[in-house]
Each structure stands twice: as C-alpha cells, then as structure tokens.
Computed example of a mutant assay.
Amino acid sequence: MAKEIENANKPKIQMVRKRYKGILMMENEIEEIEKMDTKDDDIWVCSYPRSGTTLTQEMVYLVQTLDFKTANSVQLDQRFPIIDLKDDRYPYYKGIKGIEQMESPRMIKTHFHHFLLPEQLQKGKGRIIYIARNPKDVVTSFFRLMQWGNELVEGDKTFDLFVDGFIKGTELLCPWTRHVLGYWEKRNDSNVLFLKYEEEVRVMHRLPF
C-alpha cells in the first residue's frame, strides 16, 4: 500500500504532442527523419501501436543474429530502438542520433505512417516489415497502455472517448485505416513484407518448442 501511495504521488511526466501533416504524434524529429539517409541493409519494423510490434521485433532480431544470449540480457529498446521519440528524460528515446550510432545491419522500430517514413526508405533503400492487428484489440490495448503511462489527455481520458478518437481519426497516429492501407498498398514492393499478428501467433503456436 505504501508503494502504491508513493507511485500515486510521483509527478506525471507526459510526453509533448504535436501534429504533422495532419497526423497527431508525440514530439520527435520527423522533419529530419523524412530526409535522413537510410542503408540498404536496414530493417524497419513498422506498425500502428499495440499491433504485435514487440513480438515481431524479437523474431526479427533472433532470425538476423541468432544471438539468444544478448536477446536475454539486453533491453529490446537498446537492441531495436524506436526512432519516433526524442526525449532526454528517457534512456532509449534518442531519436536519429541513436540510430546513426548503430552498427549495420540496423534494426529500427517505428509507428509512422508509410508516407512519413524516410524518403529513401520509401523508395526501396532499406527493408520494411509491417505488422497489422485486429483494430478492436489494438484500440483496447493502446488505451490501457496510455492509461498505465499517464499519457491520456482531457479529450481521451475514458475508453469511450479514446475509441471515438480512434474511429474518427483524431487519436494518436490515426486514422488507423490510413495507417494500415498505406503499407498494404505497398505490400508487393520488393522491400516490403506485410504480416498479420493473428497469423504470426498461430505460426508460433505450431512451432515444436
């Protein structure tokens, strides 16, 4: 009980929000990210939040490296950082600078829409793995994450309000449909692999271990 009271009294640190090209997102370096240099052997795991990103990242990391020891001992956000967030209050939200310091092949996570990805990546310089999930599960999981992280604001403090924003396209990184369709339309590009979370989980359950 004492620990719960202590946590409740801690100041809430909310990340700054911004809108760019019509998309609401957390504070980041999007203008620089669009123009950044990518590498042919980059692997970008892309998704709308809460779509199975972590599972996909771990699978990609192990297929790429077969380094189970590091996977068990080093935080995923360090091995496979997210580029969307730049906030010095958090150890892994280093933005572009953190990505540039990585050795190749770089494994990068993003929740950006396809049209907001680095222009070189959109043109094929680097590989994209996109993971999509049933939107009912996505919105429920996303709300719970935002609630847990004290990131809900006045317009989305209840689940009903959050769902309304998700459907209307005013919530973070929405419209969800535009996000998924942006990658779906590129699924036949040579550098794009489009996956579905539910199929990914079914395959995992069939593996003999």
Rank of each mutant, 00 (worst) to 15 (best):
F162L: 02
K69A: 13
L145R: 07
G126T: 00
N188T: 15
W184K: 14
K109L: 00
I128H: 02
W176F: 15
V192L: 02
E4Y: 11
R178Y: 12
I43F: 02
C174M: 11
L116C: 04
R106I: 00
H114P: 07
V45S: 07
Q101C: 08
I23F: 05
E34Y: 09
I43A: 03
T53V: 14
L172W: 05
F166M: 05
S104K: 08
F68R: 03
M59R: 01
R50N: 13
T53R: 01
R187M: 15
G149Q: 15
M36R: 14
L145C: 08
T177N: 15
N134C: 05
D164L: 10
A2S: 15
K123H: 08
K18G: 01
E6G: 01
N150R: 08
L181P: 01
R79G: 00
T53N: 04
M146W: 07
E29I: 14
N28S: 11
K35F: 02
D156R: 12
Q101V: 08
P118G: 02
K94V: 04
D87W: 05
M25G: 09
D77A: 03
W44H: 00
P49M: 07
Q101K: 14
F159I: 04
L173P: 06
F80T: 00
V201K: 07
H179S: 09
F68E: 03
T38A: 09
V63H: 06
L172C: 07
V203N: 07
I33E: 00
R178H: 11
E6C: 09
V63Y: 08
T54D: 07
M107C: 14
K136A: 09
Y93G: 03
R202Y: 12
N72R: 11
F159R: 00
R178T: 12
E200C: 09
M15P: 01
K94H: 04
M26E: 10
Q147V: 03
I99H: 03
W148G: 08
E58P: 04
